[in-house]
């Protein structure tokens, strides 16, 4: 036990700063990916053929290729991008594409009568979306969106292939050095768990708040 504690104390500072990197990657790409996904989902369902094609192309591309490929692509093809930025761009675009599909499904699951009622009152498409349709999607969005964000949080480990020493890589390095597998990975697992559980708890609170509004 004391050996475990001693090892834990040794690795903790580096592990925590790596955790910070992971958090930065996850939070920033989530925050940027959600509005991007919203725009793409609206583009997908819009009447404009051009918008629809661009949005579809984007979503197909980023859901249809491996995330690691996307990360390596940005880092490898654009020489000016440093690892963290390249990873961030890839994560944001990837998360946006998955979010777009989640939102599109949520929007299309709203009864068509809602849009008809809004338009029949003289509301524009945009007004109807903003005031009637989208607010009704929030509750439907939460479970799949939480899933996507949880997956994203764990996928941030891919940033290691472009030189970012995030939680997973830092743990691996300690294990490589010390061969103390359990005593190191248990902390990595704990940190990932805390992040995902916190996210889920936040979503639950949001869901309850939305429920109260009927």
């Amino acid at each position: 036990m004391s050996e475990f504690l001693a090892h834990s104390i040794t690795i903790m500072p580096a592990l925590l700063s790596a955790l910070l990197k992971t958090l930065q990657l996850a939070v920033i790409s989530a925050v940027l990916g959600i509005p991007l996904g919203l725009m793409a989902s609206l583009g997908r369902i819009s009447k404009s053929r051009i918008l629809g094609l661009i949005a579809s192309g984007y979503v197909t591309l980023f859901r249809g290729t491996p995330l690691m490929l996307q990360v390596l692509f940005f880092w490898g093809v654009f020489s000016q991008l440093e690892g963290f930025t390249a990873a961030l761009i890839a994560f944001t675009l990837n998360s946006g594409a998955y979010t777009a599909e989640i939102m599109r499904a949520a929007i299309q699951s709203i009864d068509k009568g809602q849009m008809e009622a809004a338009r029949s009152l003289g509301m524009s498409y945009g007004q109807a979306m903003r005031r009637v349709i989208l607010p009704q999607t929030y509750r439907r969005l939460l479970p799949p969106l939480v899933n996507e964000l949880a997956a994203l949080t764990k996928d941030t480990s891919l940033a290691m292939v472009v030189g970012v020493v995030e939680l997973m890589k830092q743990s691996q390095q300690f294990v490589a050095r010390t061969a103390n597998v359990a005593g190191t990975y248990v902390w990595a697992a704990l940190f990932y768990l805390v992040m995902v559980v916190a996210l889920t708890a936040l979503a639950n609170r949001l869901e309850k708040k939305l429920e109260a509004r009927g």
């Binding site: 009864d111 009568g113 009622a117 009704q136 009927g214």
Partner: peptide
């Protein structure tokens, strides 16, 4: 006025 009312539930 619609058969299924279509009131805005929120």
């Amino acid at each position: 006025v619609f058969q299924r009312f279509n009131l805005f539930p929120h």
